[in-house]
Design a binder for these strands. Sequence first.
DNA 1: TTATTTTTGTATCAGGCACTACACAATCCT
DNA 2: AGGATTGTGTAGTGCCTGATACAAAAATAA
Lengths: 199, 199
Amino acid sequence: MPDTKITAKRGRPRAFDRDEALAKAQLLFHAKGYDALSVADLTQALGINPPSFYAAFKSKLELYDEVLRRYEKTNGLDVDTALAPGTPLPDGVAKLLRYAADAYARGGPCGCMVIEGARGTADPQAGQKACARMEASRAYIREKVVVLDAKNAEICSDYIMMSFAGLSASARNGMSTERLRVMAAIAADGFSSYLEKDV
Amino acid sequence: MPDTKITAKRGRPRAFDRDEALAKAQLLFHAKGYDALSVADLTQALGINPPSFYAAFKSKLELYDEVLRRYEKTNGLDVDTALAPGTPLPDGVAKLLRYAADAYARGGPCGCMVIEGARGTADPQAGQKACARMEASRAYIREKVVVLDAKNAEICSDYIMMSFAGLSASARNGMSTERLRVMAAIAADGFSSYLEKDV
DNA sequence: TTATTTTTGTATCAGGCACTACACAATCCT
DNA sequence: AGGATTGTGTAGTGCCTGATACAAAAATAA
């Protein structure tokens, strides 16, 4: 009976750690963006040659897509906690924006990789990949908001995404986490006021 | 006595209208961004050949800088009106964000050329040019805010710039002017609440 | 006319980009 | 051992980028 081991290894073994390389690539893409990071930069940083790179990751674009999904797992905001059922919507928005403020300047002034990649990426395919991930996030947030306040779900998710973009941009401009938190709180207060008028 | 005419023309006259070309280049840079717009794209759109392009504009980078300044003149927000002396700061912020909402989706989903160019531009020199213009705008706004409320000038200008970035990103994502205005009003309300707590 | 200056079109340039052909090396399976 | 399979290093592919060399053309100045 054949061994059902996941890493069915036949042939010459890979000389580098693929996951480690993926983590490094994530940091590089996050810091420099898709266009400004060349395959030559990557191979040099990873200490490998182009054929090894393409054997492991297929192409720059596929690596980017894989990195985007990894980023969501490692750096994704805890939407479920922020918008847990039963949470008053204003509190949920405040929490979520606070999470973003905490995250976007962590480990350097890089903002959100998905949001930054969704715009300003010259390569159309890469931009589309990032846009797709951003839309998925928006949809997930909207889904959670609907449970809390179906009537305001659209405007709420729009406002959250806009605030994310503003916070991400500010973070990339060097704003401190402390100051980002203040910005997030102010923005959240605005949505709170909006709901009060409405109800 | 020599003619002091500004257009002292000697030699073969230019076969195209430089200002017109500048306006076209502005639209193109605004729509596609610095990196995604090649010199070949430009020369083709302008109906000229590379040597004519370089004779008129020196380089892609210098044209971009010229376009950025032209953009500020043609599409710049009326900060002086929004933040005129005597205006209550919350009203000024609301006006300014409203202006941005009105402007960012005008003529297509392009957002603010300066803000979008300041990030996400792979070419470091071009990114620096856009960043410099954005910093100049921030400084100008802060200067006007100081007159209205010196104590809150820093946090206010930070919040305005963050909101601009959020609005610009949303506009580029296709948000309508109508919806952008709602977003701007909500964001402005947040700053209003912040000031009320503080005073 | 003749000289000078500037623009124009043709045909490139060198350099960086993502990516690969090829032969060899290193492992597993029989 | 021998065959199959997979990764690696050297070297290079074609393509697109921003930018030019060059000579002819079109204007002014003397």
